[in-house]
């Protein structure tokens, strides 16, 4: 894995890794492809049993990004882990709701501590 992460940073909160996505808007496919590669590489290497993704810096997303999130979720689940999402603006959350994924495939919480409490 590359030493320097381009699209996200990671910190541990109560033993749970919290991935904070960078400030890029995830609407451009080439950026989404690279970000997904970096994220899946992290997941495959770390195999976290619990993982929170923090969206506080994400302005808006596309359906391509949603598809990427489904792939990342598959990787987390494939290693026996659980993924939860936090700090999503209404703009970012709306596509997840419209596509019926919020509450079904993805559990979305207001804050990271709430997401961690829900594990």
């Amino acid at each position: 894995m590359a030493d320097e992460l381009k699209f996200f940073s990671v910190k541990q909160i109560e033993g749970v890794p919290e991935i904070t996505l960078g400030s890029a808007d995830f609407v451009s496919r080439p950026i989404i492809v690279l970000a997904k590669e970096e994220l899946t590489e992290y997941v495959d290497l770390q195999k976290p049993p619990k993982l929170v993704m923090n969206f506080k810096n994400v302005g808006h997303i596309s359906s391509e990004f949603i598809a990427a999130m489904i792939d990342i979720q598959d990787h987390v689940v494939g290693h026996g882990g659980t993924l939860k999402l936090s700090h999503m603006s209404q703009t970012v959350q709306t596509p997840f709701q419209i596509t019926n994924l919020a509450g079904r495939l993805f559990m979305i919480y207001e804050t990271t501590p709430e997401a961690i409490d829900a594990f």
Partner: peptide
């Protein structure tokens, strides 16, 4: 229909759904 629980993880159709929304 991408919102059908059977198709949730399938690719395709979500973009058009967002456009319509």
């Amino acid at each position: 229909d991408p919102t059908d629980p059977e198709n949730l993880e399938r690719a395709g159709g979500r973009g058009l759904l967002l456009i319509n929304a």
